[in-house]
Each structure stands twice: as structure tokens, then as C-alpha cells.
């Protein structure tokens, strides 16, 4: 079986055209891979480029150089050069993403927000709702909130909706951008066990965790992002 995610010699810089075109290098020569059933954690201080790497893997940031190879239905796809339609297909079926913040849509209920990725993949609405309810239950989101739009929820509640939405599918690759940032201890434990279950199912996880306890509990491997500091020449 192919390695689900391979990042190879990736470089990224921002060119700020509004500030006389200054170039802000972010990372260069980023190379690592994530195996099935493994949780790799991006490590390093703030500003080292952890989030940028995650966003490049999701296709959210452009890639200047290098390759990001993902196993999409047995086909190897280079996300650094893939067309938008392919990226959308990869997101639908192969790469899941739990972001730090929930982009709320007015008037859509929490249950629908969580079930949506399944519905988009063709799962019947009732079944998708049942699985969404199960996850929200595990994450201790009070049932009275399920039918409400998450816009007015607290940060922790929104985060749990977001986590449920990310974990509901069986994407072979899952990206986690500080999923536990605003959670209490109980719910952090739930997330840790959710991650363990994903690993057992052979999902390749790549995440950023500032919370040392969680990182300790889930990380199989730390990818030190300071190694990829832009300008640093690979040895």
C-alpha cells in the first residue's frame, strides 16, 4: 500500500505586493511523509510555518516548489500542481481537515454542519444525521444545541462541532489544526480517543498541537519544522 501522504522539498514564500513586493520566505525544503495509522505532529515555535505546511497540504495555500503527493483512490496526485477540481475531489474523498475556527454559515444547524461532509459523499441524510448525533453526543455537546446554527455557540462548543465535522468521514488522511485549543480536560480526552480510533483504522494523521499533554498522548512522531526554516540550506 502506498504511503498516504508524502511531502517532498516543498518551499513557500509570501510576496507582499502591497509592500513594495517584499518577499517573506516561510519554509523551504520541507520533506516528510505520514504512514497509514500514524499520527505525525508538526513541532516548533509559533511562526515556524506549521500552519502554512498544513494549509499547503490541504490545498489552501499555494506551493512555490516541490511536491505534495497524496494517494487518492490508488492514484498518486501532486497537490502542488493539481487543478482545482482535483483538489476538491481529494478534499471530498481523501483529505479531511479540522481547522481551528469554524466558518459558520447562517441558519444551518449544528447537526447539518456536522453531517454535511457525509451528505456530500452521497450518504443518505438520515444516516448522516445519526452519525453526526453520535459524534456530537460523544463530544458532550448538549442535545438542545444540535438543531441551532453554531454562530452563537461559545468557542469550545464551536470547536466541538468543528471536530465532529472533521472526524465524521473516513478520509484516509486527516489534518488537525489545534483541535483541542479551547476544550476542557474531559473533551480533550474524547478527542485523544477519537484520534486513537482513527489510527487503528489506518488513517494517516498530521497535526499541530500546542497542548503538550495531548501532543504527548497522540504523537507517534514529531516533525521539527525549524529544520525547514526558509533560507536554511539542507545539509
Amino acid at each position: 500500500m502506498a504511503t498516504p501522504l508524502i511531502v517532498s522539498e516543498v518551499a513557500k514564500a509570501f510576496t507582499m505586493h502591497l509592500r513594495d513586493g517584499i518577499r517573506l520566505p516561510v519554509v523551504s525544503n520541507v520533506s516528510f511523509s505520514v504512514r497509514a495509522g500514524e499520527c505525525a505532529v508538526l513541532g516548533g515555535p509559533s511562526g515556524a510555518g506549521k500552519s502554512s505546511i498544513l494549509k499547503m497540504v490541504y490545498g489552501n495555500y499555494g506551493v512555490d516548489q516541490g511536491q505534495i503527493i497524496v494517494d487518492h483512490h490508488g492514484q498518486l496526485v501532486d497537490l502542488a500542481t493539481a487543478n482545482p477540481r482535483t483538489v476538491l475531489a481529494v478534499r471530498r474523498d481523501t483529505i479531511g481537515y479540522v481547522s481551528q475556527f469554524l466558518r459558520t454559515v447562517p441558519r444551518v444547524s449544528a447537526l447539518d454542519v456536522v453531517a454535511e461532509p457525509l451528505v456530500a459523499r452521497g450518504v443518505a441524510r438520515d444516516e448522516a444525521h445519526a452519525r453526526a448525533a453520535e459524534l456530537l453526543g460523544r463530544l458532550n455537546l448538549p442535545e438542545r444545541l444540535w438543531s441551532l446554527p453554531p454562530a452563537t455557540f461559545s468557542g469550545g462548543e464551536q470547536q466541538r462541532v468543528n471536530i465532529a465535522r472533521g472526524f465524521i468521514t473516513d478520509h484516509p488522511v486527516l489534518l488537525l489544526d489545534e483541535p483541542t485549543a479551547s476544550l476542557d480536560a474531559t473533551n480533550r480526552e474524547v478527542v485523544i480517543s477519537l484520534i486513537e480510533e482513527k489510527k487503528l483504522k489506518g488513517v494517516a494523521l498530521l497535526g499541530i498541537f500546542h497542548d503538550a499533554d495531548v501532543r504527548e498522548a497522540v504523537a507517534d512522531r514529531i516533525v521539527d519544522v525549524t529544520e525547514f526554516a526558509a533560507g536554511k540550506i539542507a545539509a
Binding site: H17, G59, N60, G62, P84, V87
Partner: peptide, 21 residues
């Protein structure tokens, strides 16, 4: 041109950067 979130989160052309900012 590109994915909507890519263009908006990582705008590259000077004009797009101006629009987004």
C-alpha cells in the same frame, strides 16, 4: 484563478492582494 479559498487565503497577484486587504 483557482480554488476560492486558495485565492482568498493566499492571494498572489498584486491586484488580488489589494482586493483581499
Amino acid at each position: 484563478a483557482g480554488l476560492t479559498d486558495r485565492v482568498l487565503d493566499d492571494p498572489r497577484a498584486p491586484y488580488t492582494q489589494l482586493l483581499v486587504s
